[in-house]
Design a protein around this nucleic acid. Sequence first.
DNA 1: CTCTCTCTTTACAGGCTGTCAATTAGGACT
DNA 2: AGTCCTAATTGACAGCCTGTAAAGAGAGAG
Lengths: 195, 195
Amino acid sequence: MSSEAGKPDTRHRILEAALELMRRGAAGASLVQIARHAGVSRQAVYLHFADRAALFLALVRHVDAQRDLAGALKRLDEAPTGVAALQAAVDMQADLNPGLYPIAAAMDAVRRQDEALEQAWQDRLANRLRGARAIADRLAAEGALRQGLAPDTAADLIWTMISLRMWEDLVVGRGWTAERYREHVGEALRRALLA
Amino acid sequence: MSSEAGKPDTRHRILEAALELMRRGAAGASLVQIARHAGVSRQAVYLHFADRAALFLALVRHVDAQRDLAGALKRLDEAPTGVAALQAAVDMQADLNPGLYPIAAAMDAVRRQDEALEQAWQDRLANRLRGARAIADRLAAEGALRQGLAPDTAADLIWTMISLRMWEDLVVGRGWTAERYREHVGEALRRALLA
DNA sequence: CTCTCTCTTTACAGGCTGTCAATTAGGACT
DNA sequence: AGTCCTAATTGACAGCCTGTAAAGAGAGAG
């Protein structure tokens, strides 16, 4: 065990190296590339991770730990109204997705090749769906949902419109600024859902 | 060259075999699997396609030719108003995506590994963007766009909301019926964009 | 019959993953 | 000092994949 932190942890070095490779678009980087980038032998990677899939999984958790996910979720809970929470969810995407996106893209590219990765991917989707449902329920409880829109349908619409994919389409694909994303996606959601 | 059709065309058989494998979710099928499925040697594949990427490209064109893409686009042009065209675009996704989806998923999984595939993918995105822009322009010309919404922004919003990804989220991910997709996405778009 | 085109079989080079074994360098502990 | 343990290294191997190459079989056209 030794000291708590500060040690030139090899596991950490590997994760950071993989992260940087993902950030520069090398989604399909081989283990030898990652290892070389971390200044370590290929076998050392297998000392710390069971296989390629486990490394990706750890990478996702690593990034989650870096980003202040818990804080963002708390801000979402603390929003005074459902409508405010809706905008807070959009803001959260605008803030967090730039850092999450490279990893997500890499995961998306390889998830179909491994059961554990696909499972982790589905878990994340389910998590975001729970968040969307919570917002939809608040809106429904406040009577803010427009006539003829069931909370379930509203939740699904929120879920898909604040997805990383839609953020990617607009910000990465169409070059929107974070501000523009916040404003127009927020407005579109309010108009689509509210009375 | 020989006869026009009917011949037990090996190239065609390979494409059909690949298509069926994609449909049953084997996005990462190897060439030997595809060849065996087509009842042909692995080398025969290389007689008809330069490499794996070329096969995928031909697969996309193959599917496009099967689906009545031209007819759907014509129906979109013939819509009497911009608002009708908007709904026609949503309907088009609901009709065509079930057949397109398996190939698109396979393409999406491998496109980052090949420049030509990435190019083809971007071309398709650009095509859909042109369609979205045409609708946005019609809406603007008819004065139907809501105040404060630039045609460019409207086009981007239409583009992303009728994307295959959003269709996948709702229909494949959340189990929506085609009817439900048509109704709620259409309504959400109208509310988000129109006066 | 011969020529040509397609497909088959066999083989090879090179890259990747995952596993194993033997070995080395450093720290910690007595 | 010496000993022991852990982490990392080198080297090697099986198995899968792609893409290239060469040699031969079979069928149809002229």
